[in-house]
Simulated scan of single mutants.
Amino acid sequence: MLTPTHLPTSVWATAQANGPKQRRDRYTPTSTTHPARMLPAIAAHAVRTYTRPGQLVLDPMCGTGTTLVEAVHLGRHALGIDIEGRWTAVTRANLRLARTQGATGTATVTTADARTFADPGRHGAVHLLLTSPPYGTAVHGRVDTTRDTGHSGLARYDSSYGTNPANLAHAPTDRLLTAFTAILRTCRPLLAPGAHVVVIARPWRHHGELVDLPSAILAAGQAAGLLPVERCVALLAGVRDGDLVARPSFSQLQHLRTAREAGLPTHLIVHEDVLILRAR
C-alpha cells in the first residue's frame, strides 16, 4: 500500500487567472460573501480529470456551489449539500446563472448536515466526490484597511461561514476531522466502484503550531475505507516565464508579517494540497 509520503503527485496550474477573474460573470456577486471559495479552475480540473460527461459529481459541503457550477458547465450532473441555507440559496442562484449561459448538466442542492444525509436512490451513482472542508478560518474573509475606509485600523468582514452551531467551521481541528471522517463514511454508499474522492486543503498555523490538515485528511479517508492514490498541488499563484506570481490576500500577508515578527520562519503558501482517494 502507498503511504501518504510516497503517493504520486502532479502540479495543477490553476491560477493563471486570479480568483475574481475566474468568477467574473460566472458567479453571482453574492458568492463573494462566502469566507473561503474554491478556485473554479481547481474544481474544473478535477471534474475533467476524474469524470466523463454525464457522470455525477457530489460536494457534501458545497458552500456557494463552485463544484456544482463547474460540473454542469462541463456536461456533468451534480449533487450539493450544505448545512447553511444561506449558502444553498446562493448555490441555486449560481446554477440558474449557469443554465442561462448554456450549461448542459443538471444539479440538485439540499440543505442538510452531510454527516446524516441519505439518498438511497443514488447509491453507487457518484463518480467524483469533490469538496473542501472549512479550515484555517483566521485567514479567511475580507479586510478593508484605513485607506479603504478612512478610519484607523482594519475592518474585517465576510468572515463567517454561518450561525448553525453544527457547522464544522466552528469546530476545533480534532472535532473537524472526526466529523469529516463521518461525512466520508456516510457518502461511501453513494460512490460508484473506483470513484474518486478529491479533497482540497492546506496546512496552517494555530498559535504558532503547524496544523498538517492534508495528512490528517488522508488518514480520515483511510479510516472511512478509502484508498489514497495521489497527493497533488493546485497552484494559487500564476506561472510566468518560469516564476510564480503570488496573489496573496491582505489577511494572508498580515498573518505572515505577524508570524515573522514573533520569530516564526513562516512563508507565504501559494498552493492548495489536493488529496485524492478512491473507493475500493
Rank of each mutant, 00 (worst) to 15 (best):
W204M: 05
W87H: 13
G80Q: 10
G121Y: 00
T110M: 05
G162N: 10
P203R: 07
P29E: 10
P8E: 10
I183F: 04
A138V: 08
A216Y: 01
L130M: 12
A234H: 06
T5Q: 14
A182T: 15
T88H: 13
G102E: 10
L97I: 03
A182V: 01
Y157P: 03
V245F: 02
A78V: 11
T145L: 14
V69M: 07
R23D: 01
T66N: 02
H170E: 00
T186D: 00
A44D: 11
D241R: 15
G238R: 12
R115V: 01
V143K: 02
G153R: 10
P120C: 04
G102C: 09
V274N: 03
P29C: 03
V229N: 02
S10G: 02
A17I: 01
H271L: 08
C62F: 13
I269Q: 14
G54K: 06
R280N: 07
G153L: 08
D59Y: 12
A234V: 11
T49P: 02
P40I: 10
G124V: 11
L191Q: 04
A224D: 05
A13S: 11
A155S: 12
G150S: 05
T33L: 14
A262L: 13
H271N: 07
I83F: 08
Q222V: 10
A125Y: 04
T104H: 03
G102W: 13
Q22M: 13
A195P: 10
R86N: 03
R247H: 15
R48K: 15
G242I: 11
G85C: 13
E70R: 06
I217N: 02
A78K: 08
I81G: 06
V72Y: 05
E70M: 06
V233Q: 12
T88L: 11
L2R: 14
V211Y: 03
L275C: 15
P214W: 05
L128Q: 09
D113E: 07
R278S: 09
R278N: 01
R175Y: 00
A166H: 14
L227F: 01
T49S: 07
T9D: 02
A279R: 11
Q55V: 08
I276M: 03
D82T: 12
H45D: 12
E230P: 00
R188E: 04
P8F: 07
A78L: 09
V69C: 09
N18D: 14
L191G: 02
D158C: 09
A78D: 03
D59V: 11
I269A: 09
A219I: 01
E84M: 10
G75E: 05
G150Y: 12
A201F: 01
L218S: 04
T88R: 10
D158R: 15
T137K: 03
T30R: 14
V245R: 12
H267E: 12
H45A: 15
A98D: 03
W204L: 02
T110S: 11
A17P: 00
H123M: 00
L213D: 09
A224V: 09
